[in-house]
Design a protein around this nucleic acid. Structure first.
Length: 678
DNA sequence: TTAGGGTTAG
């Protein structure tokens, strides 16, 4: 038999109840013996009911309690906080104050967390000042909670003030300030605070390391991440799914997909978040096919994709121009989940990048809660499709809302002007961006304006703009200038710029190809040979051009001069027929786009084998009359193929959409939407 | 005068 002589027995008994049944038996016993009514063990009972998942019984115990101490209140407040009902937690706090109960450190800690979760700074500050009044100013739990409140509400400076004013800090306080910096986009400061923590002799745990991994992901610098990973292995720190997922994300964002994949393989437990970290890693690094395969594998492992993983899938579809799958992902989100702002923007971007600007616009018009990102996305969409004036008109509509354009808005707008050849508008808005909107131009803004001027043939002005920059201009600007020189045949100046580009030691084979192209266009074969030698010495090869065409929802890829295709002979025959028809209409091959020093006839034949021509021929052969073709190319369309595709669109009476690495070309009836301005 | 409470991933 139990002895009821000692008062505290119910608590220890409740504590060992592991299931609802034994718990309710003890509960009944307590009521029978009257202990429940007199003691303050009800807090323990509430906590236990809540832990077993039975919040209703917990609430009933609370409401039926004749005596409620602060621990009774805390137990229920904690229960709601854990149940993710922060509003109810705050309600209980208010009721408790009204009933004259004095909150303690735990009460403040939990209610402050609830406010942080709701981003309710006003209530949070009210609770904070109450805590100070009651003498909890120097309490480390309350301090960290206040810190977290400010950090979550985006008041990082106030958070730092609280942190600096804390007489005592523990690991959680340090972690809170570090993750606060990370989450407000100040990753460098996060790393600095971590160093300060180390200097003060505090050893980090795995939670701090998650913050560091995020910093490395944001900073695009894996060095610290790699060494922290090693440190964790050496010290045998626990690696749970959260730590491993943040590692995957960090490696993937730094382009180290092998390492990301290795971490993923070693995981003993995975969830949707870890899967989608890997999927978005592949998608963002351009491995769209692999990303989509992983999405399918994830489902076969029994994980249902959520919005985030589907957004990654949309990014993958956008990369490779897989409109049909993108559409079905859109449908899946509509049917099974909810199209929120983030996914809507991803869908808009997908439609745009898969060539369907009208679908992108239609969806944009239907989205109710537009934020800056949605506006930026649609402006960028018009930009890549050559709709500079529409981009401007949407930008002006956005001005009527309370949203303020940011540097990304202007990058999209200026790029839209450059793709449409709206030189004066570009120069005007570049100026307004600085004077009226007080946005300091980044290199990408300069790049757009340089590109705009260079493409219009105003290479000297572009050169002056580059030289007016305060910061050292990056190679991208010189490359934009060089591309302008090549396209406008300004070869003397172009060769000087080419020298400048070579001095900056580019690591992109595409840039060498452009440089070589300029020398080749100037028939300066010695320089062409020199560039090729530099490329060879640095172990670089020109990226082979390839084009992808979607036929009946499946992608078919073609490499330049690809003869391996089962339909190769049919494709060649189709191209020869098109070539004859084009020549009747006045087409003359522009052999200056062939890199090598070869006989004219050989050059002409090489042009016919450019990957986009193969893809177009395949598309024509395998789709019905009138079907629109979408071709995606990994490089820029060459001038000759551009001219040829215009003729082809007229000969076969088809709309042919080509997405090259920079923009879209809609070929129809012998014309291209870019108006030959590119 | 037990323990309860604050920090972490796509």
């Amino acid at each position: 038999m139990y002895s009821f002589s000692r008062a505290p027995w119910p608590k220890s008994l409740i504590a060992i109840c592991k299931d609802k049944r034994s718990l309710s038996q003890v509960h009944a016993l307590m009521i029978l013996t009257g202990i429940f009514a007199t003691g303050d063990s009800n807090g323990q009972l509430i906590a236990s009911y809540a832990k077993s998942g039975d919040i209703i019984s917990a609430r009933n115990v609370f409401e039926e309690s004749l005596q409620r101490g602060v621990s009774t209140w805390n137990a229920l407040i904690i229960a709601y906080s854990r149940k993710d009902s922060p509003l109810e937690a705050i309600n209980l706090y208010r009721r408790m104050i009204l009933e004259g109960i004095r909150p303690d450190s735990s009460t403040f800690t939990v209610t402050l967390k609830a406010c942080a979760g709701l981003l309710d700074l006003k209530t949070g500050e009210e609770i904070r000042s109450h805590a100070i009044d009651l003498g909890y100013k120097n309490d480390v739990f309350v301090g960290s909670s206040v810190l977290n409140l400010y950090a979550k509400c985006g008041k990082m400076d106030e958070a730092v003030r609280v942190f600096d004013g804390m007489p005592k800090r523990d690991l959680v306080s340090w972690t809170t300030i570090i993750t606060g910096y990370v989450q407000s986009g100040r990753s460098l400061e996060a790393v600095n605070i971590y160093r300060r923590m180390q200097k003060e002799g505090i050893q980090g745990d795995e939670i701090v390391m998650v913050g560091l991994f995020q910093s490395c992901a944001n900073l695009g610098d894996p060095k610290i991440g790699l060494s922290v990973h090693g440190y964790m292995i050496r010290r045998d720190l626990p690696m749970d799914v959260v730590v491993q997922t943040s590692l995957i994300d960090m490696y993937a964002k730094n382009g180290l997909l092998n390492l990301a994949f290795r971490v993923f393989e070693k995981m003993s437990y995975r969830n949707v978040v870890s899967w989608s970290a890997l999927i978005s890693g592949f998608a963002q690094n351009g491995y769209a096919g692999e990303a989509l395969e992983l999405l399918i594998e994830m489902q076969s492992c029994g994980f249902k994709p959520d919005v985030v993983s589907l957004v990654s899938a949309l990014v993958a579809c956008s990369h490779i121009g897989l409109l049909k799958l993108g559409k079905s992902v859109h449908g899946y989100i509509l049917r099974r989940l909810e199209l929120d702002r983030v996914s809507a923007t991803a869908v808009i971007d997908m439609y745009s990048k898969c060539g369907s600007l009208s679908s992108a616009r239609a969806l944009f018009d239907r989205v109710n809660m537009r934020d800056l990102i949605s506006w930026n996305a649609i402006i960028a969409s018009y930009g890549v499709h050559g709709g500079g004036r529409e981009a401007l008109s949407i930008f002006l509509q956005m001005k009527d809302t309370k949203l303020r354009p940011d540097h990304a808005t202007f990058a999209s707008l200026l790029s839209a002007f450059s793709h449409s050849g709206l030189v004066e508008e570009g120069l005007q808005w570049f100026k307004l961006m600085v004077t009226e909107y007080k946005i300091q131009p980044h290199e990408k803004h300069y790049a757009c304006v340089v590109d705009l001027l260079a493409r219009a043939g105003r290479v000297e002005e572009a050169h002056e703009l580059i030289q007016s920059m305060v910061d050292e201009p990056g190679i991208a600007l010189w490359v934009a200038l060089l591309a302008g020189c090549r396209n406008k045949g300004k070869l003397d100046f172009g060769q000087k710029v080419a020298e400048k580009v070579l001095q900056l030691k580019p690591d992109d084979p595409g840039i060498y190809a452009l440089v070589s192209n300029v020398f080749a266009a100037a028939r300066n074969w010695d320089e062409v040979a020199r560039v090729r030698k530099v490329m060879k010495n640095t172990g670089m090869k020109k990226v082979p051009g390839y084009s992808v065409v979607e036929v009946n929802g499946r992608l078919h890829a073609f490499l330049m001069e690809d003869k391996s295709h089962p339909q190769h002979e049919k494709i060649v025959a189709m191209l020869e027929w098109l070539d004859q028809e084009m020549r009747k209409m006045g087409y003359v091959p522009k052999t200056e786009f062939v890199l090598h020093d070869l006989e004219e006839e050989v050059k002409q034949r090489m042009l016919c084998n450019h990957s986009e021509r193969l893809a177009i021929a395949f598309g024509l052969l395998n789709t019905g009359p009138g079907t629109r073709l979408l071709i995606t190319k990994n490089l820029r369309v060459c001038g000759d193929c551009h001219a040829a595709t215009k003729f082809i669109s007229k000969i076969v009476d088809r709309e042919i959409v080509v997405r090259d690495v920079k923009r879209f070309h809609h070929f129809k009836d012998g014309f291209c939407s870019c108006g030959d301005y590119w």
